[in-house]
Amino acid sequence: MGCLGAVAASECKVYEYLLNTPACNQTRESVTEFANRCEGFKLTVADKQNVLNWRPTSVADVYAMVEDCGKRFSKDEQGGTQNEEERAKELLGLVNEIFSRPPIKQEDELEVDMKDI
C-alpha cells in the first residue's frame, strides 16, 4: 500500500488518500510557516485547514474556502486601503510562496495536452 512500518490500516488509508490531494507534498515546516504568516488575515482554524488541505489556485477558490471572505477582507474590517479582492490575492500569493505546487497527475497532463491542441 505504500505505508512503511507498523501502522494501523486506517493510517495507511489516510496516507493513501492524502497522496491524491493538493496537500500531498506539504512539510511540517511549511504548515508552521503558513500558520505564522497568515495571522494578519484573521482566518479561523477551519479556514486555515481548508486552505492547507485544498490550496487555492485562484481568487474564486479563496472566496469558496474562507467563510465570509468578503466581509472579513473588506476595507472596513482591515482599516487599510486594500479592497477584499486584493487581500484575497495577497493570501493566494502567500500560499503560492510557501507551498510548492503539487505534482501533476497523469490525468492532469492529458488535460494540459488537450488544451494545447
Rank of each mutant, 00 (worst) to 15 (best):
F73D: 03
R37D: 00
K13E: 15
E39A: 13
V59I: 07
W54T: 04
V14R: 10
K89C: 07
G70R: 08
P102S: 07
C12R: 02
V31N: 00
G2I: 15
N50K: 07
E11D: 11
E111T: 12
R28P: 08
V66F: 03
N36Q: 10
F73L: 04
P22H: 01
V45L: 14
T21Q: 06
E111S: 09
N36C: 05
R101E: 11
E86D: 05
K13T: 11
E29T: 09
K13Y: 13
K42Y: 11
Y15Q: 09
S10T: 14
A88C: 05
C24I: 05
N53F: 11
V7L: 09
R28W: 09
K71S: 09
N50G: 10
E67N: 13
C38H: 01
N83Y: 03
T21M: 05
R72N: 06
S10V: 14
V59P: 01
D61F: 03
S100G: 13
K71C: 09
S100M: 10
E29L: 07
V112L: 10
E33F: 02
L52W: 03
S30Q: 07
S58L: 04
D113Y: 12
R55A: 04
V95K: 00
L92C: 04
M114D: 14
V112M: 08
V14M: 12
V59W: 01
E90P: 06
A35D: 00
T57G: 10
L110F: 11
G79I: 05
T57Q: 09
S30F: 00
Q26D: 10
Q78A: 15
Q82C: 15
I104L: 14
G93F: 03
E111K: 13
S10K: 15
Q26G: 04
L94I: 04
G70Q: 07
K42A: 10
F73Y: 05
L43H: 00
T21K: 05
Q106C: 12
A8D: 14
Y15K: 08
N83T: 03
S58W: 03
R37C: 01
A9S: 14
V112C: 05
L4Q: 15
E85S: 06
E16T: 11
N20T: 15
A88T: 04
P103A: 05
K105A: 13
V51N: 00
T44F: 02
K75E: 12
V45D: 11
P103F: 06
M1Y: 13
T27N: 00
R55D: 03
G80F: 06
D47M: 02
Y15F: 13
E111A: 12
K89A: 09
T57K: 09
S74C: 13
T44L: 04
R87Y: 08
K48H: 04
E109D: 07
L94E: 02
V45N: 09
A64D: 12
I104H: 07
G70T: 08
Q82H: 12
M114W: 10
F34I: 02
D61P: 00
Y15A: 10
K48R: 08
G2Q: 14
Q26L: 15
C69M: 03
S30E: 05
K42C: 10
R72S: 02
R37M: 02
K71N: 11
W54P: 02
E107H: 11
A46F: 06
K115L: 14
T44V: 03
L91K: 00
R28K: 14
Q82R: 15
V14T: 11
A64K: 12
V14S: 08
T32G: 02
L18F: 08
L43F: 01
